[in-house]
Amino acid sequence: MSQLHTQDYERMLDLVAAVLESDDPAASGRLISEHLRTAFDCGTVIFAEVRTAQRSGRALGWAPGSIGAEAEHVIRRRVAQRHPMISYLAAGRQSPAIVSDICDKWRHSQWYSEARRDYGTTQQLGLPLPGEPGILRVVSLGRMGDFGRRELEFAQRIQPLLVSAHRNMREQQRLRDALAAATGAVRQVESHELTPRELTVLGLLAEGLTAEGIGRRLTISPHTVNRHLEKIYRKLGTNNRVSTVSLARRFGLVM
């Protein structure tokens, strides 16, 4: 039988609304973390990503905002210390877990002492976000006092939502990066200031002619052609024939 209360379902809806309303991937992780801190009545939330091969990690979100400057440092320290939740995730476990349930020595550990000293929290609940191989993601919630079975059930209920929210954050970031790259390329091409001779050389390059072939067509030496090409590469921000022709075609400089 479910132990969830009506208020828990209301908090789920609040979390859904927060995810749907946010269109800034950089802020989404922090917004979600703040909602989770309220929903679980806990002291800290860190939305962490750990890359196992590099033994490194980063923070995708955190609450309260005051721990932002420390969040990534904490993650890196926990990776180096081999925190029990990292071992839990690395073993392929995907269910939300209370850390004292997976670590018998939790209350006598360095992790417990540091969390209590630095944040006033004595218990942690880890909410895994399954993803691609080699990358571990977890939302770690810390509070003074224990998490109960109700909080664990609540975490299980919202886990699929958080997985989807993270995918949405990644897709938003991918689209933003693509837009930024395209906008940058447009500005680059619009301000290229290619001379008429350089545009001619670019057109012949797009036809597949070598430097020698372009030189014969224009009655100039291959050395002069290469000087033109160096200037074209510099102005377009490219460094080879293929990328230069591709960019030029994309923005209508050549056919």
Results as ranks from 00 to 15, higher is better:
Ala26Glu: 15
Ile46Val: 15
Asp24Arg: 08
Ala69Tyr: 09
Val45Leu: 09
Met12Lys: 03
Ala27Thr: 09
Glu21Arg: 14
Gly65Pro: 01
Pro25Val: 00
Thr44Gly: 03
Ser66Leu: 12
Val16His: 03
Thr38Cys: 10
Leu60Gly: 05
Gly43Thr: 13
Thr38Tyr: 14
Ile32Cys: 01
Glu10Pro: 00
Gly61Asp: 05
Ser66Tyr: 11
Ile46Met: 14
Ala63Cys: 04
Ala69Cys: 03
Ser56Glu: 15
Ala26Val: 07
Phe47Thr: 01
Glu49Lys: 13
His35Pro: 00
Asp14Gly: 08
Asp14His: 12
Leu13Ile: 14
Val50Asn: 05
Ser28Arg: 10
Gly43Pro: 04
Asp23Met: 11
Ala26His: 11
Leu31Trp: 02
Ser22Gln: 13
Pro64Tyr: 10
Trp62Phe: 13
Met12Leu: 15
Ala63Met: 04
Ser22Pro: 01
Arg11Pro: 00
Ala18Pro: 00
Arg37Phe: 05
Arg37Met: 05
Ala63Asn: 07
Gly29Met: 03
Asp24Val: 00
Asp23Asn: 13
Ala48His: 07
Thr44Trp: 11
Leu36Ala: 05
Leu60Gln: 09
Cys42Glu: 06
Ser33Met: 01
Gly61Val: 03
Arg58Leu: 13
Cys42Phe: 05
Asp14Lys: 08
Ala48Gln: 15
Asp41Lys: 13
Thr44Gln: 13
Ile32Ala: 02
Ser56Asp: 15
Val19Ser: 03
Thr44Asn: 11
Glu70Ala: 14
Asp23Leu: 11
Asp23Ser: 12
Pro25Trp: 00
Ile32Ser: 02
Leu60Thr: 02
Val16Gly: 02
Gln54Trp: 03
Glu34His: 08
Tyr9Gln: 05
Ala48Asp: 11
Leu20Thr: 10
Glu49Ser: 15
Trp62Tyr: 14
Ala69Glu: 14
Ala63Ile: 00
Ala71Gln: 07
Ala27Trp: 08
Gly29Ser: 06
Asp23Gln: 12
Ser66Lys: 11
Leu31Met: 10
Ala26Leu: 10
Leu20Phe: 09
Gly68Met: 08
Glu21Lys: 12
Leu36Pro: 02
Val16Asn: 00
Arg51Trp: 04
Asp24Lys: 06
Glu72Leu: 05
Leu20Tyr: 10
Ala17Leu: 12
Glu49Asn: 11
Gly43Lys: 11
Glu72Asn: 11
Thr44Phe: 10
Asp14Arg: 11
Ala71Pro: 04
Leu20His: 14
Glu10Cys: 12
Pro64Thr: 07
Asp41Pro: 02
Arg30Glu: 12
Cys42Asn: 09
Gly68Asn: 06
Arg55His: 13
